Amino acid sequence: MSEHYNTSYSKEEIAAILQKIQDCVRAGKYTIAQNEKRAQNQALIREYNLRTERQRHILLQIEPEDFCHSLQNTNIGFEHEVLYVFCPQVILFNFHGEEKQVDIYTKFNIIDLDSGSLIVVISFHERNKPMDYLFR
């Protein structure tokens, strides 16, 4: 595991962070990044025909046990942001109707504004590297 990964959280702290994330998802105050730098996100959504409601459902099914680590944002101007990584296991169906258990790598940025919080789901794609879970 990278020395940049932070795993010094209690399960209660992660449950509270996840609650904040999921409250924003329920309120529609979130977005899943799908720009040109997020081709893997686009590929997952396309491969499994994940419409908006299914994406939302996946995000709302994440549990504290799916938490892996947090890390500091390294993008210039955003170094103050903490990113939270969860990797839930979800049953999905591809275009051929084949069922597959997929580990979905999700990375969340919680943006606190005067008007409330907003969630940016930076990563929403198949896991592409080994992951360690903090509470499993």
Rank of each mutant, 00 (worst) to 15 (best):
I45C: 05
N94R: 04
E81W: 07
G116S: 00
A16N: 13
K129F: 11
T106M: 02
Q89H: 09
T74N: 14
K107S: 10
S117D: 03
I17G: 02
S70E: 11
P88S: 08
L134I: 13
K20C: 07
E79V: 09
E53K: 14
Q34K: 15
V82P: 04
F124I: 05
I91L: 09
S123G: 10
A27D: 08
K11M: 14
T31I: 07
A39F: 13
D23I: 02
F67S: 13
S123A: 07
N128T: 15
N75L: 14
F124M: 11
F95K: 10
L60W: 00
V82K: 06
S123K: 09
I91R: 06
F86Y: 13
H80M: 03
K11I: 12
E3A: 08
T7N: 07
H69K: 11
A33S: 15
H4I: 07
H80W: 09
D132F: 12
C24S: 04
I14S: 05
H80F: 08
Q101C: 02
R46H: 09
Q101W: 03
K29R: 11
E79W: 06
I62S: 01
I21L: 03
Y133N: 05
T7R: 07
T74V: 14
P130Y: 04
H57M: 03
I21A: 02
E13D: 14
R54L: 07
S2G: 10
A15I: 10
F93D: 03
S123Y: 06
V90H: 03
G77T: 15
K37H: 13
L50H: 09
K29M: 01
F93P: 02
Y84M: 03
S8L: 15
A39W: 13
K107V: 08
N49W: 01
L71W: 03
Q72H: 14
N94C: 01
Q34T: 12
S2K: 15
V120H: 12
G97V: 04
N35Y: 10
A16S: 11
L113F: 03
